[in-house]
Simulated assay, not measured.
Amino acid sequence: MLTAKAAVAGVMGWPVGHSRSPRLHGWWLDRYGIDGAYIPLAVPPGRVAEAVRALPALGLRGANVTVPHKEAVIAACDQVDPVARRIGAVNTLVVAEDGTIEGRNTDGFGFMENLRADRPDWRAGAGPAVVLGAGGAARAILVALADAGAPEIRLLNRTRDRAETLAAELGGPVRVLPWEERAFALDGAALVVNTTTQGMGGQPALDLDLGRLPPAALVTDIVYTPLHTPLLKAAMERGNPVVDGLGMLLHQARPGFEAWFGRVPEVTPELRRFVLEGL
């Protein structure tokens, strides 16, 4: 039961009704018996800064940020951590005791923790990574892979200019290849990541021939509806290890929950089943 001292956080977006975060954080709050609440915060474009600055006055500990506000919230933060600054987007806001607001980005953390939890023996330094897509999720994943020691990251996007811009901004081991050469880019790869919406329910499957992919290469997809996308099914059929995208959603939520509610939450099979039931 909530009391007047309940810790409160939420998720900002427009629209926000599709967010799985209230279900996810609500499960953890119940699981650990925490006096707290996690609520949806529908914030229309143009009022983002106003909403962020209101968090301390309303007594909220912070909030997650989802589309389309991840970039716009940066200007409203008192400080932004280095990872979020490099990515150019914030998905987690933390209100300090003095009322200042810090912007963080935990998407890359969630991506890497998902791989490590499912495939403990996998290492980013094992070989080249192939990343398909150059949107917001790709930015976070590229930074995470580079920081984890990936020796080469082959970035491919249907609009090459966007990939070139992203590679120029991030630097490091990111190398842009033409979308038409995506099948050849798999030569010698240790990891393949699909960050596009291709393969999501209602979208066409990702057109990618896996014939050149080494048998031991790990294949992952950030899409989790369906849980096993056509790409993951094709990889499994040829014997490649795969990791689905649901874990990224679950793991990226952990740092925010710890900051707001004072407990390090666990990602368990029970949590996965509970979140899947809501999809």
Rank of each mutant, 00 (worst) to 15 (best):
T3N: 06
K5A: 15
V8N: 04
M12S: 13
W14V: 11
P15F: 11
P15D: 05
H18I: 14
H18E: 14
R20Y: 14
R20P: 10
G26Q: 13
W27I: 02
R31F: 05
R31Q: 15
D35V: 14
G36H: 14
A37V: 03
A42T: 04
V43Y: 14
V43E: 08
P45N: 08
R47V: 00
R47N: 08
V48M: 08
L55N: 11
A57K: 00
A57I: 00
L58F: 14
R61D: 04
G62W: 10
A63S: 15
T66Y: 10
V67N: 01
V67I: 15
P68M: 08
P68A: 06
P68H: 07
H69S: 11
H69C: 06
A72F: 05
A75F: 02
A76R: 00
A76C: 13
A76V: 07
C77G: 05
D78V: 03
D78W: 05
D81Y: 00
P82I: 02
P82C: 10
R86V: 02
G88D: 06
T92N: 12
L93W: 09
V94G: 06
E97Q: 14
D98S: 08
D98R: 10
T100E: 14
R104T: 11
D107R: 14
G108P: 08
F111G: 04
F111W: 01
M112Y: 12
P120K: 05
A124W: 02
A124N: 02
G127E: 01
V130D: 02
V131A: 01
G133E: 11
G133M: 08
G133Q: 07
G136T: 07
A137V: 03
A144P: 01
A150N: 06
N157E: 12
R158G: 05
R162A: 08
E164Y: 12
E164N: 09
E164K: 13
L166A: 12
A168C: 05
E169L: 13
G171K: 12
P173S: 02
V174W: 05
P178D: 05
W179S: 07
W179E: 11
E180A: 15
E180G: 06
A183R: 13
F184V: 02
F184W: 00
L186G: 10
L186W: 07
G188P: 09
T197I: 03
Q198E: 12
M200K: 07
G202T: 14
Q203R: 15
A205E: 13
L206Q: 02
D209T: 07
G211Q: 13
V219L: 05
T220L: 04
I222G: 07
Y224F: 08
T225R: 14
L227A: 09
T229P: 09
P230G: 07
L231G: 00
L232Y: 13
A235I: 10
R238F: 06
N240C: 15
L246G: 09
M248G: 07
Q252Y: 13
Q252D: 08
A253R: 05
W260R: 09
G262P: 00
P265Q: 06
P265R: 03
E266V: 10
E266G: 14
L271F: 12
L271K: 10
R272L: 08
E277Y: 00
G278I: 00
L279N: 10
